[in-house]
C-alpha cells in the first residue's frame, strides 16, 4: 500500500503524458463541436447581395437536403475552399446556399465575381446575428441541413475532397434515402 503511494507521482505523470500525446496528435483540437446537430435551423431572413437577388431565409433550407456555407471576402481559407464548392455545385445536384458573413456587400460581390459564384441563394449577415444563432466561430463553416429543416452536420474549415467523399457525401445520400 505504501509502495503504491510512492508510485503515485509516476502514475499521474504517465496519465498526463498520455493525455498530452493524444492531444498533440489530434488534428481537430481547435474545432468546437456544434450544439445544433439535429435541431431546427434557427429562424432568419437575410438580405440578398445587392443586384444579385435570391435572398436567403431559413424557409429555403427545407424540402430537400441542402448545404449552408459561411464565407466572407475577408476570409483567406475561403479562397482555398472555393474550387471545392464550385466542384460540388457542378458535379452534385444539391442546393448550396451561402451566408456572406461580416462583409461589405460590394466586397462580397467583387470576391464572387473574381472567384466564381457557386451559390444558389446568398444572405448577408453583417452583424453576426445569424452566425451566432448557428454557433459559428469562423469561416468557412458548412452545415448539412436535412429536408425537415434540421441541421445534421457541421464541418469547420475548408471542405477537403477527403471530407467530402468520406463524410459529407455519404451523409447526404443517407438523408436523401430516409426522407
Amino acid at each position: 500500500m505504501r509502495r503504491i503511494l510512492y508510485l503515485l507521482p509516476l502514475i499521474i505523470l504517465a496519465g498526463l503524458v498520455v493525455a498530452f500525446a493524444l492531444r498533440l496528435g489530434d488534428p481537430d483540437k481547435e474545432t468546437l463541436p456544434s450544439q445544433l446537430i439535429d435541431r431546427k435551423v434557427p429562424q432568419f431572413a437575410l438580405d440578398p447581395l445587392p443586384g444579385r437577388g435570391r435572398a436567403l431565409s431559413s424557409g429555403d433550407l427545407k424540402g430537400q437536403v441542402s448545404l449552408l456555407n459561411i464565407f466572407g471576402s475577408w476570409c483567406r481559407s475561403c479562397v482555398a475552399e472555393h474550387p471545392m464548392l464550385k466542384r460540388i455545385q457542378r458535379e452534385y445536384d444539391i442546393p448550396l446556399h451561402g451566408i456572406d458573413w461580416k462583409d461589405d456587400p460590394e466586397a462580397g460581390k467583387a470576391w464572387l465575381a473574381r472567384h466564381g459564384d457557386p451559390y444558389d441563394r446568398i444572405g448577408l449577415d453583417p452583424d453576426s446575428r445569424v452566425a451566432i444563432d448557428l454557433g459559428v466561430t469562423g469561416a468557412p463553416e458548412t452545415f448539412i441541413v436535412g429536408p425537415d429543416g434540421r441541421i445534421r452536420y457541421k464541418h469547420t474549415g475548408p471542405i477537403t475532397p477527403k471530407v467530402w467523399k468520406d463524410t459529407m457525401l455519404p451523409l447526404i445520400r443517407k438523408l436523401r434515402r430516409t426522407s
Binding site: 509502495r3 510512492y6 508510485l7 509516476l10 505523470l13 504517465a14 503524458v17
Partner: peptide, 13 residues
Amino acid sequence: LGVSFALYAWRAP
C-alpha cells in the same frame, strides 16, 4: 520526470 519519479518510488521509502 519519468526517471526522477521512478527513482523516487524506488528510493524514497
